[in-house]
């Protein structure tokens, strides 16, 4: 079976949870086997039920007080015990903070070859062969796993949701859950309801060409109008024009939205390293020779300050015509 670690986001599932189920289901199909989902901690019942739509035939759901706070050593110990009692050939995790913390521990424990941040299905199985990006997107490598078991971490938003309705059995298991070695002293979570950058389908990002923090109003208005998250380039974050949490690029967040709007961003190679997994890149820059136009799919050579209000109007007009 393929073990899918389905992440619990504070008692709920998010797109990433269903995406990993979808992906596991496709890998299992290639391997002629089925998906064993693993969920740790309590999750809304409707959310659990929703996994049926994405091909999870068997779900092991463990609830235990020792599962909070998140301790990667405890989590990997629990997942390993589940794997040992089932015939697991492959593990799949989401390549986010939590998945990246657990997956390598599982790989080391089972001496399973790990391929991280994959964006597609394996080319073939036995041996598992998969193509992944290397050199921060500057090349692709065909990667072969030589061990019997494999571990893959899936780049968030790269596979999407694929429905494959099945009927699912939910079981618990008698499992040893050691006490965590981590104590939370303080927690700070944004409850503004803003879309997290790494999950956003649409991202509107500003660079130095925006000229200063006081010009961000129209950018934010456009983003909120189309339901996008906001981001920025490194110099913008370094100058303090925008919070560091918005910085995308090789040394910031690495994202894969459907559309990435690069406004006043020249497109340095380090920046592109963080956004090259976007499906479409839309660039607006005053400099027609800016490297961003080599990476972009659509673009306008022009002044972003003039164009943003026009884009807001054009979008409103397009939506009005639609209704």
């Amino acid at each position: 079976m393929i073990l899918a670690y389905i992440q619990n986001f504070n008692g709920k599932f998010k797109k990433a949870s269903y995406e990993i189920a979808s992906y596991a289901s496709a890998v299992a199909k290639m391997a002629g086997t089925s998906v064993l989902g693993v969920v740790l901690g309590s999750v809304a019942e409707d959310d659990i039920k929703g996994l049926e739509k994405y091909g999870v035939e068997k779900l092991i759901h463990i609830e235990n007080a020792n599962l909070t706070p998140f301790d990667p050593k405890v989590y990997s110990h629990v997942i390993a015990q589940i794997a040992e009692k089932n015939d697991i050939t492959g593990f799949v995790f989401t390549n986010n903070n939590e998945g990246r913390a657990i997956a390598p521990r599982i790989a080391a424990r089972f001496k399973a070859g790990i391929v991280s941040a994959v964006t597609q299905l394996p080319d073939s199985l036995s041996p598992l062969t998969i193509t992944k990006k290397v050199f921060t997107g500057k090349a692709f490598a065909k990667t072969v796993v030589k061990s019997d078991k494999f571990v893959l971490t899936l780049f968030q938003n790269s596979y999407g949701l694929v429905e494959n309705p099945v009927s699912m059995s939910v079981e618990s298991m008698d499992i040893d859950v050691p006490a965590p070695a981590i104590k939370v002293l303080e927690q700070n979570v944004d409850t503004s309801g803003k879309i997290p950058l790494t999950e956003a389908e649409l991202v509107v990002s500003g660079g130095r060409g925006m000229k200063g923090p006081e010009y961000w109003g129209p950018l934010e208005e456009f983003a909120s109008l189309i339901g996008a998250a906001t981001a920025c380039s490194r110099p913008v974050a370094d100058e303090g024009w925008r919070p560091a949490s918005e910085h995308v690029g090789q040394t910031g967040k690495i994202i894969a939205p459907t559309v990435y709007f690069a406004l006043g961003i020249s497109g340095a190679i380090q920046h592109l390293g963080g956004v090259s997994n976007s499906k479409y890149i839309v660039a607006i820059n005053i400099d027609k020779d800016a490297p961003i136009f080599e990476a972009a799919d659509y673009g306008i050579v022009g002044d972003v300050h003039k164009l943003l209000p026009q884009m807001i109007e054009a979008y409103k007009k397009m939506k009005a015509a639609e209704n």
């Binding site: 193509t131 490598a141 065909k142 072969v144 030589k146 136009f293 799919d297 659509y298 050579v301």
Partner: peptide, 18 residues
Amino acid sequence: LVEMVEYELPKPKPPVKL
């Protein structure tokens, strides 16, 4: 446990539509 057997550079993408 893992070996990279073949490398490829990204295919040139179609030019930007301006």
